[in-house]
Amino acid sequence: EPLWIRPDAPSRCTWQLGRPASESPHHHTAPAKSPKILPDILKKIGDTPMVRINKIGKKFGLKCELLAKCEFFNAGGSVKDRISLRMIEDAERDGTLKPGDTIIEPTSGNTGIGLALAAAVRGYRCIIVMPEKMSSEKVDVLRALGAEIVRTPTNARFDSPESHVGVAWRLKNEIPNSHILDQYRNASNPLAHYDTTADEILQQCDGKLDMLVASVGTGGTITGIARKLKEKCPGCRIIGVDPEGSILAEPEELNQTEQTTYEVEGIGYDFIPTVLDRTVVDKWFKSNDEEAFTFARMLIAQEGLLCGGSAGSTVAVAVKAAQELQEGQRCVVILPDSVRNYMTKFLSDRWMLQKGFLKEEDLTEKKPWWWHLRVQELGLSAPLTVLPTITCGHTIEILREKGFDQAPVVDEAGVILGMVTLGNMLSSLLAGKVQPSDQVGKVIYKQFKQIRLTDTLGRLSHILEMDHFALVVHEQIQYHSTGKSSQRQMVFGVVTAIDLLNFVAAQERDQK
């Protein structure tokens, strides 16, 4: 057995438009009618409502009807409940999964919650491996369901041993009777949507819809739904939504950006999952974080739909894509998950301010006199920076000697690579993860907040409520011999709460 199987392995699926269902090699399930009293909570997966979006479509000038398939009504709160249950049931049916076995899954959280929910009911041990950027709410729900959680670096490539995929496979090879159901490759993922989600949409719309818009992560949702719609409703256009920084969209030119990270969760990847059939997507749109969270908040405030950030991405694209539809036509959007997962993220004004998705003037509360002053007023001194090749031991000596707790790590040209902190280095040394002679590049981390000289002290204040420091950066445009230009970030300084307090105190003292 291989040590790991690539999540982007070539698909062996034989589905073709027009091929009889009787030739399918898979076990198919028909939607079942729910009894009045459910035998367990797993029976509350599927049969989610279709809700008309009344205000947002009109606000953006849509002539067509805009409908939302509300997947956050599933038992675990997301569309991923469907595939989690289906993968477990299919693994039980073919004898792969037996009582007492362990389920391991690399996930952005929602599939993990679905699997942990099913594992709690069915009696399996469950280990979820997820990147650090995923919300604390997801972690809390997983723990409450009895799952064990392993976190991995957000910026690790999918084929790196440190990625959530790599760590999951390492655990599988170490733990007896453990299984990775593997949402990236498992046919049960798109089949769950082909058999149930798509049929529900067709039934709820009486077979009449002209466009379907869905955000894409593993691709199982859009693949399964689109294949069924292509068979039953061939005139329906399928629109895929991919965040900026991901590479799922086609044509490839759409993916060209210097951005590699994004805040919206559960969609987009740096590889093409095996289950994603991009041939059934008629057109791709890219979405960005700001519009995703703005539209998610709009869905909550104006439509009462308590959905997550990827739902915002989907609707932001839908109001663009559906401009081509006329009166009497219908566009369906998939709202994948609930706001429950993001209470401390985009639902929080403070978080939105820190990330730059909300401006101070958007909030009406009274601010102190210094709130709208610029960061450049602080008069920061030149920063202490270190090269990635310097040793951890030497870096600790320098920081202690100069009285700093942290320093930016830059390359020879001064471009920011990340940050090192005294606390992080000492804990890594004590844990045996690094040696004093190791290069400081081994303990770089990139989960820090950046701020510009033109940003306000109010925004800085919000950042420092949650973080010990902020890195002050400025952009530099560099022209190359080819005539092309590129933008790079340079370090201007490091600012802490002490710097802000000293500035405010000094100004008030001078005024007296």
Rank of each mutant, 00 (worst) to 15 (best):
H474S: 09
K446D: 07
V281W: 01
L325I: 06
H462N: 07
L430S: 11
F357A: 01
P368C: 06
E252K: 11
C331F: 01
L501A: 06
V415M: 06
L387W: 14
D282C: 10
L453I: 13
P436T: 15
N288F: 08
F492G: 11
I390A: 06
V420G: 13
D510W: 14
Y262W: 06
M425H: 11
A407H: 01
G423E: 12
T391I: 08
L457F: 09
H372L: 13
T279I: 10
V332W: 01
A505V: 13
K283G: 06
M352E: 01
V333F: 07
G432M: 05
G312F: 01
L335Q: 12
I398M: 14
H480I: 09
I444E: 08
Q302Y: 08
E303C: 01
V339F: 07
Q439G: 08
S310L: 04
A292M: 04
V409K: 04
D289P: 01
E258L: 09
P408L: 04
R374N: 13
P336Q: 11
F492C: 09
F503R: 15
T482H: 01
T421N: 01
P336K: 01
G458V: 09
L299K: 10
V315L: 14
V275W: 01
M419N: 10
P408S: 07
N255T: 01
V415L: 11
Q376I: 01
G493H: 11
T385C: 01
E324I: 13
L384F: 10
Q354S: 14
K484Y: 12
I498H: 01
L299W: 01
F503I: 01
R278E: 04
D411P: 13
Q489W: 10
I463M: 13
E508S: 08
L254T: 13
Y479W: 01
W351Q: 03
A318F: 03
N341F: 01
K345P: 01
F448A: 01
V409R: 01
R452V: 09
Q489V: 13
M490T: 01
C392A: 11
M425T: 15
V275R: 01
V409D: 01
A321N: 01
N341P: 01
D455E: 15
E252W: 11
L387V: 08
L417A: 06
F469M: 04
E303A: 14
T456A: 12
W369M: 15
R459I: 15
Q489L: 13
Q476V: 07
T389F: 15
Y262T: 09
F293D: 01
L399M: 15
M419F: 12
R340V: 01
D510S: 09
E465I: 01
T260W: 14
L363D: 12
P436Y: 09
T496V: 05
L373G: 15
A296S: 08
T389I: 14
S313L: 05
P388D: 01
T274R: 11
L500G: 06
L305P: 04
L358F: 10
I390L: 10
C307S: 13
A506Y: 04
M490C: 10
G268Q: 03
R509H: 14
V472W: 09
S485I: 15
D510F: 13
Y342S: 04
M419G: 09
K366H: 06
G309R: 01
T385Y: 05
L453C: 11
T257P: 04
K484P: 14
S437F: 12
G414V: 10
D411V: 08
K283S: 09
E263C: 08
I477R: 10
L306S: 07
R350P: 04
I396R: 05
E465M: 04
H474A: 05
Q507T: 01
V495L: 09
T314C: 05
R340A: 01
D277A: 07
E253P: 01
S427V: 07
L363E: 01
S427H: 09
H462M: 09
A497E: 01
V410P: 03
S313M: 04
K402P: 14
R452D: 08
Q329I: 03
L305D: 03
E263F: 08
A413S: 13
P251C: 07
L254V: 07
A301F: 12
F404H: 05
V375R: 01
V440T: 01
K283Y: 08
L380V: 15
T496Y: 04
G441S: 09
K433H: 15
A296W: 01
E412G: 10
A470C: 01
A431H: 01
V443I: 13
L399P: 01
K283V: 10
E290H: 12
R350W: 12
L417N: 09
A413W: 07
D270R: 04
I463P: 15
Q326M: 15
H394I: 01
I444W: 13
I390D: 08
S348R: 14
T260R: 01
L306K: 05
E412W: 08
R278Q: 05
T279Q: 11
L373S: 09
D411E: 07
V333G: 01
T274F: 01
M419V: 12
L430R: 13
Q329S: 03
R400M: 07
T391M: 13
V409W: 01
H480P: 08
L305R: 04
E327S: 01
Q476W: 01
L358C: 13
V386L: 11
W369V: 07
G493I: 10
S428Q: 15
V275T: 03
Q323G: 11
D510I: 05
V491T: 04
Q439P: 08
L325S: 01
Q256S: 11
S437L: 13
K433A: 10
D499G: 01
A321H: 14
D499P: 13
M425E: 05
L399G: 01
R509S: 08
V332L: 12
M298F: 04
T257G: 09
E401M: 05
R278H: 01
T260P: 03
P368T: 04
Y262G: 06
E401D: 13
L335C: 14
L457D: 01
M298R: 09
Q376P: 01
K484S: 14
A413H: 03
M466W: 14
G240C: 15
V443E: 15
E475L: 11
D277V: 01
V473G: 11
E365M: 14
S428N: 09
M466Y: 14
M490Q: 11
L378R: 01
L422W: 06
E412P: 14
N255M: 05
Q447W: 10
A413L: 12
K449Y: 13
L422M: 15
D467W: 11
S485E: 13
E250W: 05
H480T: 09
G414T: 11
E324C: 01
L501K: 05
T421Q: 14
W284P: 01
R509D: 15
Q450S: 11
